[in-house]
């Protein structure tokens, strides 16, 4: 009983969460404008978009995966592997397009490995993807070692220098296009609805004929492909392919998604929340950089926001917990299941 009502509270909390994100966004913009005369400019849009681009793109497949109650911590390593494979193939004269295709294929294979272990074998996704996190990065290292591949066609390297149009950086533009697609798929298709059902109650989804395993497998494959694509973008943007590309970004991606209101338990949240979260984080980084707060220091605020995003919807719960100290002596029997 209590878990049901808590679910409802959480649902309402999250509806409010997107509104809260809009308020935070406005606050960030006001703060930026107040603190720096250069904030409200086209360079903000361009560099903000360039900086957050990779995390933003990878946040989309992560959103779907977390919606089903799983997680993919291997995204940033897949970025690195995509980058390395792209560079390695390019170096071996496959041509740019050939190198891209090979990198995307490797992304699909890596994603399929995750998907197989999680969806078919039934292993916990957190452990599997910590394993592939290390493994993918390792393979990238085996391929490229300390070397750096460069010399990509200058026309393609434009994506790291010039905007696609209207001061919009290429990676961010890709993100927006992809986000629009994801928004439609998640919120307007049968597939999207099945993701929520899987996240809230996998068994009931299975009893309703939803192909749970196939769906999860597919999500991991798509995640692999998109992250490998992000690796290609990284190579072109930086004009060099290195195996360390994107190291450590996986936790940023998870944090952006959770801050966007996607529940870590699955089944709650929206793509628009994730888009807002991406924009807020991107703008915050620019705002702080303009007032000389280093990106490392910004982590405090970022972490704080993440914490806020899980604490605020649970405030009622906290109050109950504190008030219910006495009652705690007799916990309800129905509180079965995991944490």
């Amino acid at each position: 009983m209590s878990s049901e009502s808590r679910g409802r509270v959480r649902a309402r909390g999250l509806v409010r969460w997107e509104s809260a994100l809009v308020v935070i966004l406005i606050a960030v913009v006001l703060f930026g404008v107040a603190e720096s005369s250069t904030f409200w400019s086209t360079t903000t849009i361009f560099f903000g978009g360039l900086d957050i681009g990779q995390v933003a793109i990878m946040a989309l497949p992560m959103t779907m995966i977390i919606l089903t109650g799983e997680i993919d911590l291997s995204v940033a390593s897949m970025l690195g592997l995509g980058c390395a494979v792209f560079g390695y193939a390019f170096e071996h004269h496959t041509g740019v397009v050939g190198a891209m295709l090979i990198a995307l294929a490797v992304g699909a294979i890596g994603g399929a490995l995750n998907g197989f272990l999680v969806a078919r074998v039934g292993l916990p996704s957190i452990a599997v993807t910590i394993g592939t996190l290390t493994m993918f990065r390792g393979i990238a290292e085996i391929l490229l070692g300390q070397s750096e591949v460069s010399g990509f066609p200058p026309s393609l390297e434009q994506i790291g220098i010039a905007p696609i149009f209207l001061h919009l950086a290429y990676p961010f533009f890709f993100f927006l296009v992809l986000a629009a697609i994801y928004g439609v798929v998640v919120h307007r298709t049968a597939f999207g609805r099945s993701l929520y059902a899987i996240g809230l109650n996998t068994e009931a989804a299975f009893f309703a004929g939803i192909r749970v395993r196939r769906t999860k497998f597919l999500l991991y494959v798509v995640s692999g492909v998109i992250c490998a694509a992000t690796g290609i973008i990284y190579s072109l943007q930086a004009a060099s392919a290195i195996y360390t590309a994107g190291t450590g970004l996986e936790l940023n991606v998870v944090a952006v998604v959770l801050f966007g209101g996607i529940s870590i338990f699955g089944g709650r949240g929206s793509v628009i929340g994730v888009v807002l979260s991406v924009i807020i984080v991107g703008l915050t980084e620019v705002a702080f950089t303009t007032i000389n707060i280093s990106s490392q220091e910004q982590q405090v605020i970022f972490g704080g926001l993440l914490l806020l995003s899980v604490v605020v919807p649970n405030v009622g719960e906290v109050r109950n917990r504190i008030r219910g100290r006495v009652r705690r002596a007799a916990p309800p029997v129905s509180a079965g299941g995991g944490l």
Binding site: E4, G7, R8, A11, V184, R188, T189, A190, R193, S194, Y196, A197, L200, N201, E203, A204, A205, F207, A208, G209, I210, G267
Partner: peptide
């Protein structure tokens, strides 16, 4: 509660869960 329904989902979504194709037009619900 465990197998028949997704308890936290809306009534509508539960009614349609097993037959989403029939309310889908050109790929969209």
């Amino acid at each position: 509660r465990q197998h028949g329904l997704v308890m936290d989902e809306s009534i509508e979504r539960n009614v349609l869960l097993a037959s989403l194709a029939s309310v889908t037009r050109r790929g969209l619900i």
